[in-house]
Design a protein around this nucleic acid. Structure first.
Lengths: 162, 162
DNA sequence: TCAAGATATTTGCAAACGCATTTATTTCTG
DNA sequence: CAGAAATAAATGCGTTTGCAAATATCTTGA
């Protein structure tokens, strides 16, 4: 067996995943990290009767007042149909209130109720904890740079204006 | 309405998500980014008959020779039971081969077939593209620092030894 | 050495998901 | 302004998911 049938790649060839290794491929690392992040919240969420889409909707609503459902879907990274059903459950549980938009009868704006806000405030410390566990041993400067890079990346690949 | 019923928080209180904003909360940004990353691969994956768990399993197998199923689950961040079914499909499609471990009859080692390797090599350029789109306009130094931080974060929160 | 406990994987089952479609409404265009 | 196209959200339906339990095998300790 010689090199004849397997010539060396030119210098600018696409490296294989095997060559760079999983741990130099950023999306892989981000998936691993988010997997642990989600796992660390799962139990608390289950106790509060929340699924991931429900929790993400509450998180968005804790920051944005009365958004349209389609905008929640973008912020929360949840399929519109999945979100529709999640909101149905949240409304049934008294955590949110849906109101037809004043200027467009097709559209619905969503508001957090007191119950919803309280529920999210119960969960939030765990989310904050999970984040600080991630950044353990990482300096403020490094963390700031990291978040700055994330923001640039989101700008690079997002489809929506926010 | 006065401040009496709503005193200012002490300086080191846990900031609310609303205060820091979604775009300063790293897990939110990472979710948004991974959501777009996954969306950008979905069409190509569908054409190859792959789901996310199947694709991730192939990716792991392209890097690691003959891992145990439980280890694939960790690397690929896929539930055991979900992975079990994904591997069943991959085997049916001739992309992988499962072999009982020589020293432990409970355990199964998984190997990529030529078909499986070829399939992943068809997908990989899209994955590489997706990554470089993320890093567009970001310098090599910044990218290296970013990946370095990701690696530290994974070490911080992982449950397994790798 | 054998029962009790661990570990690896699969499977049953109900819930969740996502695509495609439907319904209702608004916007655009000729 | 009428009809066509676009948009917002909900829903039908088959597939996928994940928890828990089952199955099979290995390990440990009395």
């Amino acid at each position: 067996m010689t090199d004849q049938s397997d010539p060396p790649a030119p210098p600018d060839a696409l490296p294989r995943l095997g060559e760079m290794g999983l741990s130099n491929y950023a999306p892989y690392l981000m998936n691993r990290i988010m997997g642990r992040y989600n796992a660390s919240l799962r139990e608390e969420m289950a106790q509060l009767g929340l699924t991931t889409p429900k929790m993400r909707a509450l998180a968005v609503l804790s920051v944005i007042e009365g958004p349209l459902i389609r905008d929640i879907a973008v912020y929360a990274v949840v399929e519109q149909s999945t979100l529709s059903r999640a909101l149905e459950q949240l409304a049934a549980d008294g955590m949110i209130r849906r109101e037809t938009d004043a200027g467009d009868n097709r559209a619905t704006r969503v508001y957090l109720t007191e119950t919803g806000r309280t529920t999210f405030e119960t969960l939030w410390p765990r989310m904050a904890e999970a984040q600080s566990r991630m950044f353990r041993g990482i300096s403020d400067d490094e963390r700031r740079a990291f978040v700055g890079t994330l923001q640039k990346m989101l700008t690079n690949i997002r489809k929506h204006e926010f």
